[in-house]
Structure formats: C-alpha cells, structure tokens
Design a protein around this nucleic acid. Sequence first.
DNA 1: ATTATTTCACTGCAACTGTATAGAAATGGA
DNA 2: TCCATTTCTATACAGTTGCAGTGAAATAAT
Lengths: 197, 197
Amino acid sequence: MPRQKSYDRQNAITKACNAFWEHGFQSLGVRELERLTGLNQFAIRSEFGGKEGLYLETLNYYCDAAISAEMAPMKQGGIPEIVSFFKGLVTPGSMTSSDYGCLIVNTGIENARIQSPRLENAVRSYWNTLEDHFLIALENEQAEQGEGAAFTPHILAASLVPAVMGIHAHNRSHRDQTAGRPLVDLICSILSGYRPL
Amino acid sequence: MPRQKSYDRQNAITKACNAFWEHGFQSLGVRELERLTGLNQFAIRSEFGGKEGLYLETLNYYCDAAISAEMAPMKQGGIPEIVSFFKGLVTPGSMTSSDYGCLIVNTGIENARIQSPRLENAVRSYWNTLEDHFLIALENEQAEQGEGAAFTPHILAASLVPAVMGIHAHNRSHRDQTAGRPLVDLICSILSGYRPL
DNA sequence: ATTATTTCACTGCAACTGTATAGAAATGGA
DNA sequence: TCCATTTCTATACAGTTGCAGTGAAATAAT
C-alpha cells in the first residue's frame, strides 16, 4: 500500500553518524544533513523524530558498533586485550580511530550547552560501559595472576577512561587519527609492566 | 574629548572568558554575551572586532593566565613541578581546573567546524607551549639524574599532552573539576617512579 | 556655550535555524 | 480504474544569528 521510501534506513544512519562525527550537532543544519544523508526533511521528522532524534539514533549506532567491534574482546580477556583496545584508538581502519576524534567525546563536550538529558544519558552510558569492560578485563587478569597483581582493578579502570578521552581529543585537535600514539604507547607499556612474564 | 566607556576592558574579557568556557563559541549569541559581560554590541564590534575577535582575546587571556600561573614553574623545575601541574588540573581553585573543562580543549573540538585559522593557531600554540614546558622540565630532570634517566624527554612530553586533554574532557563531561583525578594519580605515580630517591 | 569626538541604546537587516504544513507523487489492493 | 495510505517535494513560519546603521548622550577642549 504505502509508497516505497527513497532511502535505506541503515545507510542513512551511517551517513548521519559520519556527518555528526565530523561537524558536531549544532553546526550541522537540517538542510545540510539532508544533503549528506540522502534523507529528506519529512523522513528526518517522521522516521527519526527530528534532528535530535536522528542524532540519538546515530549515537546508539556508534556505541553499539564500538562496543561490539572494539570493547567486546576485553570481556573474555585481560591486559593484552586492553592493550589491543588502546592500539585501536590510533590505528587507521579501526572503528575507534578517526581524524574527527570520537563522537561521544565530542558530544560530551558540546552537550554541556544543549543540556539534553537523552544525549547526556547516551554519553554517560558509553563511558560506564567502557569502564566496565576495562574492569572485567582487569579482574580477569587479577584472577589469573593471583593476589600478587600490582594494580587495583577499579582504580586502574577509572584512570584508563580519561586517557581514552584524551587520545580522541588529541586526534581531533590535530585532525590526525594517529596523533595520540605517544600516550597510547605509554599506557600500553604501563599495562604490560603489570603483566609479569 | 571622548565619552567614557561604560565597561572595564579587562573585566569584560574575564567575564567573556568564563562565558565562552562554559557555553562554547557557537552556542553563545552576541545578545547573551552582552548580558554576561556587561559589554554592548558596539563595544564588541569596535573594541574587539566582533564576536570572533572577542573570543580570540579571551583565548589569549586564558593562555597567558594558564601559562604564567601553572606552567611557568616547570621551566625551572623537574618531575615534581610536572606532578604539581597535573595535580592542579583537578584541584579546585587552580586556574586549570574547572567543571567546564578547558577552554582550549573545548575550542579544539568545536573549531573543527568553524575552521578559523586564527582560532586554530591559538589552540595549536597552547599545546605546543605546554609540550615545551614538559620537555624543559624533563630535560632539567635528566640533566640532574645523569644518563641513567629511565625516560626519553621528548617522547614522554608528547604523551603527557593528550593526558592533560583527557583529564579536562573527563572533567567537563562529568561537570566535575575533580573527576579526572584517577588518571592524574596514575600519571603522577609513573612520573614519581622515574625519579629515583 | 559651542564644538568635535567617542560611545551609547535602539532598530533594522539578510541569512539562517528547526519545524510545520500543503499538495503532488507513488504504491498496491479492491 | 479507483481508492486508501504513505512518502515525497516545496513552501511557509516564527525565532534566532551576527552585524550594520542611526541618532542621541556624554565628554573635554575651545
């Protein structure tokens, strides 16, 4: 019965994600958004609930992709998997590596003004999820090493999260997805030091 | 001969700095800027060269203040002065500690769209200055320790800069100027480890 | 007091914002 | 073919943006 849609929903979300990632939320007008995603204004409103709705959808898409592609291995792993995650932050081709930094970091900084609780929750949830993954991997590691482990999982996990933010922020600032490598190397060497041979 | 101005220039810059720090550049309209700074539109245009001119002035003010208040000690110091700098990032009352993160980090992330070369230069210059201060302090430290120092100054300096960004980003994201403390502690303990008794 | 100069408050302007609405176009069943 | 339903394009709308212009107010030297 209905007329067929002129866009592919998932494809539009992917394009919207890239667009917001690069330009931010406020700077990206609805008309430019149409152009970059292939959506039309009616679709943005009826399918996603307006610009903010579409943004929220892209945030969820980004989070899910990052979690399943980059974080997930840490749940079954230890320090080596954390090291892999950090290396992914500055490895071209990785989901979590981009000249535009990280959509969540960017949102967290921009959202201070927008003050949208929905956006705030999405951001907070992402960082909680990351910290949880770090924590699980560190607890796995601790269980493997026994009581002699030279770190406290929950404290170390809490300090790795802002390090991730800093790598992203540095990448975006330099518009270079490998710019944060020195800190990645430092973190990785510290973590490796916690893992006796 | 001239009519006296209704504002104090330095006071206006200070207020503008706080306003931009909290709200960002794009989100803060000229009319709200008037309200928050005590300036009038004519003054913003004639005295500062419009909104972007005023923003640039606040960036310079912020940079100068941060450099002289927090970075300067590192030029004559070593690792203890670097440690002090990091602690300042999460110490209420410090110039470099704020619930709104860091004006320069925020600008670096927001400016990806604005693409103003003047803003870009201000940001880049700030991070270069910080890295230079780290480098000098580390070289001082190395000179004091002799050839046995367990770090390479220019590599370590380059990795400390994104760590600073991450602490700021974390603070802003949590709207809590002490939120980045776990990473601060981690960095400080690493640095202290580089300094034999 | 008159004058020249500067700063002021106020209004106007074109461009843009996100959203809403209206009518045309497409679709598949009756 | 006609119809109900959905999506499309296009226009309209009220609100905001940064900036420019205009005449009044203030100031200090003449």
